[in-house]
Design a protein around this nucleic acid. Sequence first.
RNA 1: UGGGGAUUGGUGUAACGGUAGCACGACUGACUCUGACUCAGUUAGUCUAGGUUCGAAUCCUAGAUCCCCAGCCA
Length: 609
Amino acid sequence: MSDHPAGDKPLNFIEHMIEADIAAGRWGVWSGEQAGTRPSRVGKPRVHTRFPPEPNGYLHIGHAKSICLNFGLAQKYDGKFNLRFDDTNPAKEEQEYVDSIKADVKWLGADFEGPHGGGLFYASDLFGSMFAFAEELIRKGKAYVCELSADEVSKRRGTPQIPATSPFRDRPAEESLRLLRQMKEGKHPDGSMTLRARIDLASPNFNLRDPVLYRIVHAEHHNTGGEWCIYPMYDWAHGFEDSAEGITHSICTLEFENHRPLYDWFIRTVNEGRTPDGSGPFGATIHHSQQIEFARLNLTYTVMSKRFLLRLVQEGRVEGWDDPRMPTISGIRRRGFTPESIRNFCEEIGVTRIESVIDVGRLENACREHLNKVTPRRMSVLRPLKVVIENYPEGQVEELDCQNNPEDPGAGSRKVPFCREIFIEREDFMENPPKGFFRLAPGTEVRLRWAYFITCTSVVKDASGNIVEVRATYDPATRGGDAPLGPDGKPTKKVKATLHWVSAPHAVKARVRLFDRLFKAERPGEATGEMLDDLNAQSLEMLEDCRLEPSLGVVSPDEPRFPDGIRRFQFERLGYFCIDPKSSSASGVLTFNRTVTLKDTWAKVAAKA
RNA sequence: UGGGGAUUGGUGUAACGGUAGCACGACUGACUCUGACUCAGUUAGUCUAGGUUCGAAUCCUAGAUCCCCAGCCA
């Protein structure tokens, strides 16, 4: 069945469901009132998604998959996307997390306040109506106050074969109502009682064994302050949040699949005694959205558990949530990744119900792919080795033209100074090169990018035999880096290698931070059960004596401005780097982060040998 | 030994009873003022066993393996 025009991406399973819903007219169409800022939306089938994080930590790349999915659907179907804080547990939630999540979602491009945005919501703003629904459930005989302690509930939970029990199950509704109000008024201590749904104590699905709706928590809430001392559980609250916001497709991860019967039960039960026109004894029917589960993102060499990431932060094993080695959005951003590259990555990996593990290299590739197109090229020497060009006049300085981006002729060029003393990369010189090494070595000739051909004449060593300097001669006829043309119009000579370089006296000094994977193991914790055992002790390398071309010391006018304000570059032959303002200002030293290396065929060959 | 899901090349993902395709990786080669990029080619797959059918990744039966569920977390 190829009813898609060539080049069209195949639909994922959620899109298939949406198409089916549209065909069936399941969710109706946008009214003029609902269309909001987009009149074009009026009359189109409703698709309304949301991203519902709990503000108990920073967002990570796994959340990015969900954000891109939900926002992407809203965009594709000209619908709406909400950001909603699922803040029903004051014990774990903080304003700091709320703020970071808002910033991260926006940075990713999922603008919940833009043309496809439905707005910003808080579950806690609905506490009042949720409480009313709870009272309604009691009146319908579908909920009761249970005075079992958490411990006792656990003991009475039963097994797959043996049903759970509660002695309070058949308590009169009036009594439950009175107790619930007392709970709300703070008359009872934490843990002394709960409100439970009256469903099925024998269900093989434990979620239906009279789940808790409300627990008593005397704690300050980041949004509602001290207004409440009872808080709704996730299962009870979530469907009402979706309902109130008019969400059509409530997308969550696979582990909530067993909760779907509960999700549906709550809405259905509230809707008992309600009618579409509001004439029922309990008023008007409330909206019932469709829960859909998909597989969360797993990455090799990466831990996505918020709890564990929090531990890394608290134990000081990383600099913080935004450490560039962290899989958090803020870490990845500080590392230099672009939102485009993350969106492309999420698009490439697809959406299914299969639990898979994506090679983290694919995320890096997505980043290279985008950065290659948009970053200006610069020359930087990370581990400097001095080269003295013996036949270049002392005191002479030339300003040479260097292209900013060979991929993009429109990016123009810049001037880079050249003189008698330059630095090259230490690893670009070998005194006794192996076969296949075609960089600089005694007697060989290489090109200095955009500059001249040079030939190594000798090596200078210190007392202990370390190479401290290389002597060379240059060919003045190769100015600009091109060999002179012969009578046949072809270059008179060719070199196999082109090296990056900087002028020694003009170079800007900087610190560069190189990052490796945070974990040594493809699946951290698999071997010993303790993820910390697989932490990579060498995941951060600081290079303190790097020399950069002078243009990096200032913001040049033709440097592209990224919307997030981050200055990103390709250091030729090395990789993609960005300035880390946080580290720079903290240390007083201009500091770059390496986002990702370039692919390096030679390193692969050399490693094999 | 209860319930709910999943299984297609190394990895990810299509195909919804009718030619198993795409992407990434890997490997070759071409090109190259980045050992990058780009381009061309090669590689390799339907969990197993039965059954239905002219025809099965797809439907049926049985089995295997993996994931989720007994928080007053989400």
